[in-house]
Amino acid sequence: MSGLNKVVTSYADALAGLEDGMTVIAGGFGLCGIPENLIKEIKHKGTKNLTVVSNNCGTTEYGLGILLLDKQIKKMIASYVGENANFEAQMMSGELEVELTPQGTLAEKMRAAGAGIPAFYTATGYGTDVAIGKEVKEFNGRHYILEKSITGDFAIVKAWKADTFGNLVFRKTARNFNPLAATAGKITVVEVEEIVEPGQLDPDEIHTPGIYVDRLIQGSFEKRIEQLTTRPSSK
């Protein structure tokens, strides 16, 4: 790494400085657009007592779910945790603390953190358990609750392409939480399928400017599909 070049060549370097007890924000929706190799590296490092912020916690065998196997996660902030038997078991037994957060609120918590906004009001969750302990304010006759933004010690992100300056392009619905996570990390680490030279990406088509990115690594991806659903070819 020198100048604006963010490229690192090993996953160990990509996650250097990640310590027990830190907060990690991860992009991805289900298993789509997850930083799968960075997650594997966290498992390999054996970092413990993590607070993980992500829409989901992977499946029993893949994605963030693999960090549950060795109980590396202390607290999970997520919107949807179905499809993971270990998750439910550890949550029920009290080993895993869980803060269920509405999906739009979760995205906005990341976006706000990255944009320097410490908290925001939303109608989402008013009058539900999500609102417990939160300030309520009325605007134009409607009730809103105050939600705080979330900053990660690390953000781990998956993009499709990048240039060496860390300008990012995402692909299809693998974008999801990734651009938001990228803005919300004190250290943002991105893994991509392809790295090109600066100037090779059309500036009009960059989704996340490199200013948000600290480290960049090229990986190869399995891209598991959770629900393979097809229609017949001839019709």
Binding site: G30, F170, T173
Partner: peptide, 28 residues
């Protein structure tokens, strides 16, 4: 089938003519 293109139920889908893609904050 494209692993990068799923719906909210995590099922593989396709895009209709005139589709648009965006991040989760924009979606909400």
């Amino acid at each position: 089938v494209d692993a990068d293109l799923i719906n909210a139920g995590k099922q593989t889908v396709t895009m209709a003519r005139g589709a648009a893609l965006f991040d989760s904050a924009e979606s909400f």
